[in-house]
Simulated assay, not measured.
Amino acid sequence: MDQEKIGVFISTLRKEQGMTQQQLADAIGVSNKTISKWECGKGMPELALIVPLCHILQISINEFLSGEHLLENGYTEKAEVNMMNLLQETENSKKKSRSSLLAFGITVIIFLFVVLYSVITNMGISMNMLFVDMPTLLSMFLVTALFLLGTNLGLPFFDSFRIIFGKKKSVSIKQLFQAKSAIKLAKITFLGMGFLESCISFMAIQPMGEGTLLFTGLSISISIALNGILYGLIGFLLLLPIQVRLEIMYMQKQEDSEKKTEDDAE
Rank of each mutant, 00 (worst) to 15 (best):
S257W: 10
L214K: 08
R14M: 07
L238V: 11
G150N: 08
K78T: 15
L138Y: 07
G228T: 06
G154P: 06
K33E: 12
K37M: 11
K42G: 10
F202D: 03
R98L: 01
V132I: 15
Y231R: 09
L213P: 00
L153R: 07
M203N: 10
T76C: 06
N73D: 14
S170T: 14
Q206I: 12
K184H: 10
P156I: 05
K187A: 05
T12M: 09
N92Y: 05
G29A: 01
I188K: 03
T12V: 05
T136S: 15
E63L: 07
I200L: 15
L24A: 01
M83W: 09
H69N: 12
S221G: 03
L87V: 10
V81M: 11
M249Q: 14
S198K: 04
I163H: 01
T90V: 09
S201K: 13
A48H: 12
M129N: 10
L101I: 15
N122S: 13
G74D: 14
D2F: 03
V171E: 08
A25M: 02
E63A: 13
I224A: 10
K169N: 10
C40P: 00
F131K: 07
I109R: 03
W38L: 04
A204V: 00
N128M: 07
I50P: 01
L240M: 11
I50M: 13
L214E: 06
N73H: 13
Q21R: 14
N73L: 07
V30K: 02
S118Q: 13
M134E: 03
S66D: 03
T34C: 06
N227I: 02
D263V: 09
D264R: 09
K167R: 13
M127R: 05
S99A: 12
P52C: 02
L112T: 08
Q58Y: 00
E210F: 12
N32E: 11
